[in-house]
Amino acid sequence: MASENKDITVFDDPINYNVTHPFQHKWTLWFDNPGKKANLQSWGQHLKEVVSVDTVEEFWGVYNNVVKVDRLDISSNYHLFKQGVRPEWEDSANANGGKFSIQFPRNRTAEAINDYWLQTMLAMVGEQFHAEDEICGAVVSVRKVFFRIALWIKSSDDMTKIQTIGQQLKDFLKVPPNIAVEFAPHGDGKGQSRMTI
């Protein structure tokens, strides 16, 4: 009887194993494609919650079955945020925070954007940032002449922490030296200024 409850790994049975590898947090994938006619009031109506994952296996199951970034329509966005955090400035987890933004020219990063987005997600779900508790989520945006990756954090008042997270993001993605990583508080609020990492 006790053996029926035993965890079976891929080493025991490559087809019928039951072991999963949980994340520290549950993550929710969102999608929107508001098109050219969207405004700030209607933007939230276009935002759709796709799926939440809390294990390595679920993450790869989703990643391998969604459209890759380079194949999305212009104006589309994927958002991967900790469960319970909406990818909106107004969400209480984001309200006092900001975002790191990296713009990649489409004509030079067409397929590379898929890897940049994957590495961003893996750094988040794998808890690779030193200030992991600061990470709210990330967004990848498809625009006519560029792709943008944005990493959102929950506070924008500790410049040392911001510098560290920004440098780690740069390192994780191996951002070329000619591409800037910029940080801006959400809504440019509270008199805080933008900075380049």
Results as ranks from 00 to 15, higher is better:
3 S>F: 09
3 S>N: 11
4 E>L: 14
9 T>V: 11
11 F>I: 10
11 F>V: 10
18 N>F: 15
20 T>F: 15
22 P>K: 14
25 H>N: 13
31 F>S: 00
33 N>P: 00
37 K>A: 09
39 N>Q: 07
39 N>R: 08
44 G>N: 09
44 G>M: 02
45 Q>Y: 06
47 L>A: 06
49 E>F: 03
52 S>R: 07
52 S>V: 08
56 V>E: 05
59 F>R: 01
64 N>G: 12
66 V>I: 15
68 K>R: 15
73 D>H: 09
77 N>K: 08
78 Y>S: 02
81 F>P: 06
83 Q>I: 01
83 Q>C: 10
88 E>Y: 00
90 E>P: 02
90 E>N: 09
90 E>D: 11
91 D>T: 07
98 G>M: 01
102 I>Y: 01
116 Y>K: 06
120 T>H: 03
121 M>P: 00
122 L>N: 01
123 A>H: 06
125 V>P: 00
128 Q>G: 04
131 A>N: 12
136 C>F: 06
136 C>D: 05
138 A>Q: 01
138 A>I: 04
141 S>N: 13
143 R>Y: 03
143 R>I: 05
144 K>G: 04
145 V>Q: 10
146 F>E: 11
147 F>G: 06
148 R>N: 08
149 I>S: 04
150 A>K: 10
152 W>T: 05
153 I>V: 15
155 S>W: 04
156 S>D: 14
157 D>M: 09
161 K>G: 11
167 Q>P: 06
175 V>A: 08
176 P>A: 12
178 N>G: 08
179 I>Q: 05
180 A>F: 05
188 D>P: 01
190 K>L: 13
194 R>Q: 13
